[in-house]
Amino acid sequence: MEMPFPLTKKKDSFTLKLSKELYKHDTVQKALSEDKDWVEETEASDEYYCFRLKTAEIEDVLNWMNSLIYLQKG
């Protein structure tokens, strides 16, 4: 399955990069705290947060992405 740049698939997980300029720190931390059993923050750069999502299902990842939009806007 084709993936856009910020999202890459590993064997049983996904790596997701989120721009710090777009996604607020508070939003990201809140989402992480709610899903810490399967979402792990890995080495970030100056411009990006980086996460490892321990799931093989792309839908789980996509739902998590949407939850960030919901948290940030709501």
Partner: peptide
């Protein structure tokens, strides 16, 4: 603006999965 994009993203939450980036 970012606010506009997030506002539209929110509206589309029931139709699409949305990922935002800067290039």
């Amino acid at each position: 603006s970012k606010e506009t994009i997030f506002a539209v993203g929110y509206v589309f939450l029931d139709k699409a999965y949305i990922l935002l980036d800067i290039d």
